[in-house]
């Protein structure tokens, strides 16, 4: 996806950040693991510890892809996905991160573009993100 498409957004509308990844996960260590891996691979990473925080974080602009945990306090993944879509439409792909035995079902629940069954491999995580966004540094060689 082209990073330059942001300029086409109408004034006042949230600005899509096509090369960014939003990680929504309530476990601090897991959130840090995922965001650290993605940052080291050159992605711009936003984080939120629950659905409400994620809504706040996306008020000013939407990311290229959302990695979403399902069970979280305050606002869970189901509620977040519904509210996010209501506000910003269907364009932003959501990748569900959840326990293996229910991953596909949860993904279907929120019409997700993909799922990462815990415990996932680091390479699986990177592949899931690379399907939707291009890392800033890697293609540009920075």
């Amino acid at each position: 996806m082209a990073a330059g498409s942001t300029s086409a957004s109408p004034p006042g509308a949230p600005t899509p950040q096509r090369d960014s990844v939003l990680v929504v996960e309530d476990d601090d260590d897991l959130r840090e693991l995922v965001s650290g891996v993605l940052e080291r691979d050159g992605f711009e990473v936003w984080t939120a510890s629950d659905g409400l925080a994620a809504l706040e974080r996306t008020a000013e602009g939407t990311p290229g892809v959302i990695l979403l945990d399902m069970r979280m306090p305050r606002m869970d993944g189901w509620a977040f996905a519904a509210e996010f879509r209501r506000r910003h439409g269907e364009h932003t792909p959501i990748v569900v991160m959840t326990a293996a035995e229910s991953a596909r079902r949860r993904a279907a629940d929120v019409a997700a573009a993909g799922c990462l069954a815990k415990p996932f491999d680091i390479e699986e995580l990177l592949a899931a993100v690379r399907r939707f966004v291009v890392a800033r540094r890697v293609p540009s060689g920075v």
Binding site: D29, G36, E101, K118, P119
Partner: peptide, 22 residues
């Protein structure tokens, strides 16, 4: 219980792989 164990296991496995990768 098994569900709750998935998160710590993901963290251990993830960092082990990340150390090898980096």
């Amino acid at each position: 219980a098994a569900h709750e164990l998935q998160t710590p296991v993901t963290i251990i496995k993830g960092y082990a792989q990340e150390i090898l990768r980096t």
